[in-house]
């Protein structure tokens, strides 16, 4: 892999928000990702792209400490995950939870505040007001008291994003946030992610719609068990690199 010039020049002074060295993760002895070396850019919107089974979600989960690394080292803002929990906000795939759960949209957003509220304390009125601000930011303030199962798929996704905003993290990790959402939701999420970027955050999305990569994202990590390329979309998202990632013959 060609070293990224920009990162080389600034790398000495600044610590990447996510840094992965020699990472291998295996399920039942079969590697899902192998020897991944990757330093994330300091800020921006980054897509992790690759075919099914390329290990995109696995990489995200390994960074979060949800699946154990067989080999390698992971640093978040220079720290091991145990010391960096407050720096990360994680948005799991929407399908990973039961939306019939007895909770309102506001209840779910407030979950993003639980770490800061602390043990044994109830969610206060002030906390609920804070949560309302984040719900408003994704355009759902009038749905605050709606049962989450009565929201559309796109609205559910926005509730998840609002919960992540409530965490006030430095770096955001989202698993397929754009999968199956409506146009409004897509527009709102892009706006929110860009404002996070402009405030200096890195937003990482597992993404599988190749056609929308250039319009939404600044950076791309092309992954197929190993890193194929990682750089700004302009330089890395080439037909040749995409073909290599998907194991297709390189055209023209």
């Amino acid at each position: 892999m060609r070293p990224d010039k920009e990162q080389l020049s600034s790398g000495a002074m600044t610590i990447p928000p996510l840094s992965v060295k020699g990472l291998t993760v295996a399920y039942d002895g079969r590697p899902a990702i192998e020897n991944v070396n990757w330093d994330a850019p300091l800020t921006g919107l980054l897509a992790i792209v690759g075919p099914n089974g390329a290990g995109k979600s696995t990489l995200l989960k390994a960074i979060l400490g949800l699946v154990p690394a067989a080999e390698g080292e992971i640093r978040i803002h220079g720290k091991p995950i145990e010391d960096a929990r407050g720096d990360l906000a994680y948005v799991p795939q929407r399908s990973s939870v039961d939306w019939d759960f007895p909770a309102t949209a506001l209840d779910v957003v407030a979950m993003g505040l639980y770490r800061r509220i602390g043990w044994m304390k109830p969610v206060s009125r002030a906390n609920r007001e804070q949560a309302r601000v984040h719900l408003d930011r994704v355009g759902l303030s009038e749905f605050a008291n709606r049962q989450i199962g009565a929201l559309s798929g796109g609205q559910q996704q926005r509730v998840f994003v609002a919960r992540a905003l409530a965490q006030k993290a430095k770096t955001y990790l989202l698993d397929e946030p754009f999968a199956g959402v409506d146009a409004t939701t897509e527009k709102v999420m892009i706006e929110v992610f860009r404002s996070l970027r402009d405030a200096g955050s890195l937003v990482v999305c597992v993404h599988h719609d190749l056609s929308s990569v250039p319009e939404i994202f600044d950076h791309v990590l092309l992954l197929n068990r190993r890193v194929i390329a990682s750089a700004p979309v302009k330089t890395a998202f080439t037909p040749a690199n995409v073909a290599r990632t998907y194991g297709l013959p390189v055209a023209g």
Partner: peptide, 16 residues
């Protein structure tokens, strides 16, 4: 709070 959280979104709770 915590019991509700693990019941609704176990992975989120674990990640954080």
């Amino acid at each position: 709070k915590e019991l509700t959280l693990i019941a609704f979104d176990f992975e989120f709770a674990r990640a954080h």
